[in-house]
Structures are given as C-alpha cells and as structure tokens.
Design a binder for these strands. Structure first.
Lengths: 213, 213
DNA sequence: GTCTATATTTCGATAGAC
DNA sequence: GTCTATCGAAATATAGAC
C-alpha cells in the first residue's frame, strides 16, 4: 500500500549506501582517520557530493549513532514492560538477555561504538543534547552506582555486561563459525552463572565440559 | 649504587610529565583529537618544545604503548611459570587472575588502550613490528580460536575476559569508592563462577546476597 | 545529484635564535 | 630546554557550473 515504507526492494538509497560504507570504514580505521574523500571514492563519486546528503562529517556519525540509540530505547522499553523497574539481579538477567539479542543482531553498530567512543561522545555534546538521550552505557553506569544494591551484586552486573561485550566484540571473529543461536545460548548460560539466576536448582552437568572429553 | 635508578625522589622528569598529561588527554578526548599544542599548554610551554623530548606525536603514544606491552609480557611470563601452556579452563583462571591484578594496578593504561584501539593499531604497524610483539588482546583471540577447545569453554573464556574489562573499564567510576582488594576479590569470585573453577565443591552461600540484605 | 574548483582551518613538523 | 616563526600537508567545507 505505502509507496516506499522502509526498504525499496531492489536498490538502497544513496544515503543508506553512504552509511554502509561509513560504518565499515569507521570500524576499520576509526572515525578520525577516515576522510570524506575515501568514503566518496568507494561509492564512485567525489567528496563534494557527500555534502548533498549530509551537511557535515559529524552528521554521518550522528545518523549511525541514532540507530544505536534506538536500540537502547528498545531494550529499556522491553525491560519496563516486564519488570516495574526493580533493580534486582533477576531483573538484570532480563536486561542482559535483551542486550545479548541486540548485540548479536547489530554487531557492527556496537563495534562502531566500541571503537569510536571518543568521537561519539563529542557528537553527543556538540549536537543538541536533545531531551536527555540517555545512552545505554550511561544508564548502565547509573545502575552500577545505586548504593542500595550490594556491591557484590553490582560487580556481578558489570561483569555480566562485560561478558557480552567480550564475547561478541572483543573476541573478534573467533566465533564467526559458531551458529548465532548456539553462541547466544552459551552466553546466556554464562550470564546466569554470573548472576546466579539459573532456573534449575541444581547445576546442570552439561556445562562442565572441561578437558578434551 | 646507581646514580638515578628509576625514580628521582622529588621531581619527575619532563618526559614523564609529558606522558602523564598525554595519557590523560588521550583518554579524555582521544589521540586524534588531542593536539600537541594542547599538551604543551598544560605543561606551561609551547608545542615546539615537545619535539625536544619526542621526535613525533606517534612516539608519545608509542611510549605509552610500550608500558602496556610490558604488562602483557609479564602476564604471559607468570602464566608459563605456573602451567606448561595447557589451555584448560583452570589455566585460563590463572591467566585471568593475573590479568585482574594488572588491570587493577594500571587502570589508566588499559583505559587508554580501550579508547584508542585504532590509533594504537596504527602505531603497531607504522613503527617497526619489532620481533612479533604479540599484544595481550591478539593472544586472547588466538586462544579463542583454538579448535581443540570446546566452543562452550571458549565462550566462557571470552566472557570472563570481558567481565574484567566491564568491571574495571566500562563501569567507569562506579566502583571508585570500593576498596581495590574487595573489588578484585568479588571479581575473582565472579570469574570462577563463569569458568566453573571454584575451589570448594559446594557453592558458598555467602555470594547469594540478592535483595536488600 | 554529482562535478570542478577553491576557500579555510588545523595540525604536525622544522629551522634557528636564545 | 624552550622559544618564535613558518612551512607543508591534509582535511572539512563552500561556491557555482553542469
């Protein structure tokens, strides 16, 4: 019905193609070391043409940042649907479960964020801080500071968050050949061991696969 | 005996003061967005004076990188003293234990690395790749790719590594008021729950501090 | 929408005085 | 060891033709 809802069937918009190349280069070389000339060359036209689609280089990064920002909102929305906002370890388990899904499905966006934290922070400052945008990571730190939660639990929260980052981002392509469903399942098990929120009372013996078998 | 072994008692050398300011700015604004003019201004002299102490901007970053590199070597050295190099989960626990100590004691250096991965990679390339320097993180990825280790275990390894990063680096100053010894102890407990290498057979009930007490 | 210029700025780096 | 002065390169951004 709608003429162009979201995805033109055959061909991506030029703006989207720019963003595709940009995220690739920003991850590989970093935002600062990536020149507009290089982005334009890969697309087959020149630097000046980019300025028809984006008013500045920062706006390219901003567009990518907004995608990540929407994901953050989605995680929080799903969380408040399930739990009233209590900050127990079981609530945190739910949060991390959603987070695992999002990182698995948007790996490049999170890689971009991991490798360009400084540049992204400056985007958040120099552009309008439009109605407290609350980044995912800022919210994390806010949780971790909550003095009414025992330190032992807060450490577990930080550790579980890092476990996701470590497995999906820092590990690089080490798990490239592992099916996504298996990887997320294994990671969820590990997260539950960190947070102590396994469903079964006794530890399943399956996961003690230690040596060569 | 030696006239000036390592630490002049009263006053740091200018070279060290430059590195102190540089690591601060590189963490805060990023390597690329930090100008030599800014470093010099904070030290009270001008940009050109820096070139007496360092031949280029990259060499400032290189000097900081070498400090981190030495730490990586130290971790590996201690590891091979204890274990012959077997890549079991218990060996990995020992590795992470050393890693926790190093991150706790050199937080700024690891923060620098976390926030300037791209710039540091280019240092490793453009400067001589002096006898396979083997970064800590490269070694990690090499371990994680080992096909003779079950995937479930490799995920646990990556998760435990990330847990350390998450607690010490991503968490920011959330644990600034927690004594270092307590923080590392809590983190080590969490790592053991990830890797399944607790010393006691039964899970100690102390760490199930869940609610409000 | 993309092009060819060109303007503007910033920065790393050098030369040479003190 | 630090200074002033300047060079040269590279990048963002703009102006205007097609």
């Amino acid at each position: 019905m709608a003429p162009k809802p979201a995805a033109p069937p055959d061909e991506r918009t030029t703006r989207e193609r720019i963003l595709d190349i940009a995220i690739e280069l920003f991850i590989e070389k970093g935002y600062d070391k990536t020149s507009l000339r290089e982005i334009a060359e890969r697309l087959g036209f020149t630097k000046a043409a980019l300025y028809y689609h984006f008013p500045s280089k920062q706006d390219i990064l901003l567009a990518l940042h907004l995608r990540l920002h929407d994901i953050g909102n989605k995680v929080f929305a799903e969380l408040s649907n399930i739990d009233g906002g209590s900050e127990s370890l079981s609530t945190w388990t739910t949060l991390i479960d959603h987070f695992v899904d999002q990182v698995a499905n948007n790996r490049k966006l999170f890689l971009l964020h991991e490798r360009n934290q400084n540049a992204l922070e400056q985007v958040g400052r120099s552009k309008q801080h439009q109605a407290e945008h609350e980044d995912l990571e800022e919210a994390l730190r806010r949780f971790l500071k909550n003095p009414s939660v025992p330190v032992a639990d807060r450490v577990r929260m930080a550790a579980s968050f890092g476990a996701v980052i470590g497995t999906f981002l820092v590990a690089g392509d080490a798990f490239a050949d592992v099916p996504a469903s298996e990887l997320t399942s294994l990671l969820r098990d590990a997260v539950r061991d960190i947070l102590g929120t396994r469903k079964t009372a006794t530890r399943p013996p399956t996961r003690r696969a230690n040596g060569r078998r």
